[in-house]
Design a protein around this nucleic acid. Structure first.
Lengths: 243, 243
DNA sequence: TAAATAGTGTCTGTAAGACAGTATGTT
DNA sequence: AACATACTGTCTTACAGACACTATTTA
């Protein structure tokens, strides 16, 4: 945190140009057995880059308003979805001279998981895979692809999909969410063993299903943290580097 | 990336205060069967915060010089160690109003693994566990603890320790590094099976050891990427990392 | 009773851990 | 030869996956 150039009367400390600093949030949910991601439109105001283009929700840090980066991410998330106690984790950061035409800029990207939004869609939920192919403002395509890869990777060995459901939820519902995110089926017996043995869940009374036998409802034992399983599903091939 | 306040002649776009932006690097190595981390001293220059305190190597982004965050991290790493092709990955970012007394500031933290430095110690390599207890400038203790936790966690299921050794290295050497980082012993047979079956290594001729039978030397098949194993090491305890 | 969905039991294959044994180097 | 270290083989155990079976609900 030191500068080569020593401070002086002619070159006061910190009097060098600073990058722009923003926070972007990749917000995932599952609606009707499809993984979706929230996108918004760039403003059409003159001077704004990528006018009208799709982009991830986010914006510059407001140093008067946001005490921390996380606060800023939480604020964005709440503004766009109304959610205030979701799963939110840092994804990564990007920064270079070119990503924003207005100058050297950095962004701190977060990714959030929320249950399917109840009200009418006041925001645009695109299918995740389609959104990854779409043209997005800035380097948001890169950010989104990184987020999706990280989510899919972690779903193999963590309880993350539980945060995509409202409580209480049933094991069949949870398994369906896993399968939706991974894009492949899982064995019911192995799935149940893994979930029940992990201590992840607390029973919360039977939930009357639609058709057939009603299922046990569950809540998370600890709302705040994901559980990490000691193995991935389908211990087949050595996987990709993930996070 | 939009502002609530519309730009105008009186309030031009982007004319709001920007946070400070820095990059810090947590550099690990293993010397004489001990995990060590590189620290430096804060300058004593008047006006600099935490004068003389220990801190992680890092500094403000130089938007004239650094094209990207990664370039900046590579530059810091090279300045401090002379290494230029190490393992380097992003750790996380921190940013809030208080971490730097000079104002709202952000840092992008990276962590690096390098082989034991050859030359005399022109830098200070502290034992990793001791450094985690030491008082460091800014929030560098938090950053260091996060880095160490991440390293230990990934060592359970990745090939990261291979980047702490010069090539070619032998399997007993590699196992010793794993044990040093993890702080516990590993079963030889299981370890060798895991490493050899993973396709991580290429044979590179026998390496004459000191005492006893000489061992096969290996190089990494792909210098750039870590391998992820499908399972973690099990918490058996065959013995101390002897000595 | 039939259909649909929830949940369980049992077998098997794979791979890791334990540990003893063999191989090859040095003094 | 004695010893130290490198390497391998064999047994056991743990657990995920496959899949068939039972249980409970609605129509």
């Amino acid at each position: 945190m030191s500068r080569k150039t020593a401070p002086s009367a002619f070159m006061p400390a910190l009097a060098f140009p600073r990058p722009l600093v923003s926070v972007d949030v990749v917000i995932f949910t599952v609606v009707q057995d499809a993984l979706r991601v929230l996108v918004t439109r760039r403003p059409e105001t003159p001077g704004e880059p990528f006018p009208g283009a799709w982009c991830l929700p986010g914006g510059f840090i407001d140093i008067e308003r946001d005490a921390t980066l996380l606060d800023c991410a939480l604020r964005k998330l709440h503004e766009k979805t109304g959610c205030s106690t979701p799963y939110l984790e840092q994804l990564a950061s990007w920064g270079d001279a070119r990503r924003d035409p207005r100058g050297w800029s950095t962004t701190h990207a977060y990714f959030a998981l929320i249950p399917a939004p109840q009200g009418g869609p006041q925001a645009s939920w695109l299918a995740a895979d389609a959104a990854c192919e779409a043209e997005l403002a800035f380097d948001h395509q890169t950010i989104l692809r990184t987020a999706l890869a990280r989510l899919r990777s972690k779903v193999e060995y963590t309880s993350l999909p539980a945060f995509l459901l409202d409580e209480p939820f049933t094991l069949p519902q949870l398994q369906r969410v896993y399968e939706t995110v991974l894009g492949r089926g899982l064995d019911k017996s192995a799935f149940r063993k893994r979930m029940l043995d992990s201590g992840l869940l607390r029973e919360a009374g039977a939930v009357p299903g639609g058709l057939g036998r009603s299922a046990m409802g569950y809540r998370l034992s600890q709302r705040q943290q994901a559980v990490v399983f000691p193995r991935t599903f389908r211990s087949g091939e050595p996987g990709e580097p993930s996070d």
